[in-house]
Write a protein that binds this DNA or RNA. Structure first.
Lengths: 225, 225
DNA sequence: TAGATTGTTAATCGATTAACAATC
DNA sequence: TAGATTGTTAATCGATTAACAATC
């Protein structure tokens, strides 16, 4: 019996479904049809039904989908019914910002430790969590059953730290450093390359402008009405 | 003459090409073939050539691609040969982290102002840039020719602020708030939904674990060797 | 010229949309 | 039962890979 592998495109949409369903739930809405959800989310009803059916039938003919049930199921698929303990490596501005972000806690992500190589930062606290020296990394991970390491350090150190993490029982790295990490299969990675995102924005600005110019020129020369 | 629209998949890969080419350039490497680049970047040579050819011939048969030329050209496509003035709305941890990030400056993104509704933060500084009250937003944007607004504020306020921004000459919003903004065509958006990213990571952890369990069970029951 | 490697066309693969029978 | 809406198959569209002729 071949297990159907879920496509990355579908996975990528799950958090957004989760968010919209959470909002509907909070509004006290009990059921929703793929049609109505598609209008809300600016997607096709067809895609929504296909997506959900990757995981088995969540709906009911003639009725639609039960919001709360669907919300819970997608939460489970995303692993949000479990707890994940994470540490942040790099106590700079970004690391601190992420450590302070309370919403992760709500989804079962527990902030357990922070590390930095800068001696001046050692001992300082972020939301009650102490910054520890890099020497204690491996021991802390082992003793506290850490699942996820968040990397908010520069490129250069990121590769070294990643190498050290490979020697631990860590399961995943949330990588904010601007490098591609080369990790064994058992360690999951999710990259957040902020400057890539900013460059895409820059591209869009550029393209829009050029289109405008082109349209303006065409109008002038009368090539098109 | 129909202009070929560049696919989002290609655009999404440009920043990564740009990064690798920058590194090659820094290492003093002059030319590279699609084959070598494909090994470095873990992509197919075919995809690389297809991608580059969306923008016209950057290479030369029998030689490959000139690293510096290609780097510059991709930079231009991404609009990195221009300057963009940006402001950050929301002087919390994340806003401050982004304001402090020097690398954006290197790519032509100039940090010009910061805004917050919290009176206690007004007047404080991030890298020499003052935090201003929200009332001054529109005037500041106009007088300083701001191109990009970075939104590092909570959901609720994000929708209101976005509405105000629509009334200005801003060209783009880099949105870190966890909502989908509904904006006119002329304002480009790029969303960074950090919790979505974390959920995807959680999904990967989950899936990998379940695969492991399945494999273990199969081995036990002898269904497969 | 011979070898290398692009640019580009054709083939394949995957993802999205459309259509409709199944069923609540 | 009739109406609504899913689940699913088929059709279309888009993106990736393979192949090879063009050319440096």
């Amino acid at each position: 019996m071949e297990e159907k592998e879920i496509s990355p495109a579908v996975i990528g949409r799950l958090p957004r479904y989760f968010r919209y369903l959470g909002e509907l739930k909070d509004e006290g809405i009990e059921r929703i049809s793929s049609q109505d959800l598609s209008e809300l989310m600016q997607a096709t009803a067809s895609q929504i039904r296909q997506d959900f059916n990757n995981f088995g039938g969540f709906g009911q003919q003639g009725y639609g989908y039960n919001v709360e049930y669907l919300y819970d199921e997608i939460g489970k698929i995303l692993g949000l019914d479990r707890q994940h303990r994470f540490i942040i490596i790099g106590a700079g501005n970004l690391g601190r910002a992420l450590g302070n972000y309370m919403n992760f806690e709500r989804r079962g992500f527990l902030f357990r430790g922070m590390f930095d190589q800068n001696p001046e930062l050692i001992g300082s606290q972020v939301r009650g969590v102490k910054v520890m020296p890099m020497e204690e990394l491996e021991t802390f991970i082992r003793e506290n059953h850490i699942d996820i390491a968040v990397l908010t350090i520069p490129k250069a150190s990121a590769l070294n730290v990643a190498k050290r993490l490979v020697g631990t029982d860590i399961r995943a790295i949330w990588n904010f450093a601007h490098v591609d990490l080369d990790l064994p299969e058992r360690i999951q990675v999710e990259n957040v390359h902020l400057s890539d995102s900013l460059m895409k924005l820059s591209y869009s600005i550029n393209r829009y402008e050029q289109e405008q110019e082109k349209t303006a020129k065409k109008r002038q020369t009368g090539v098109e009405s």
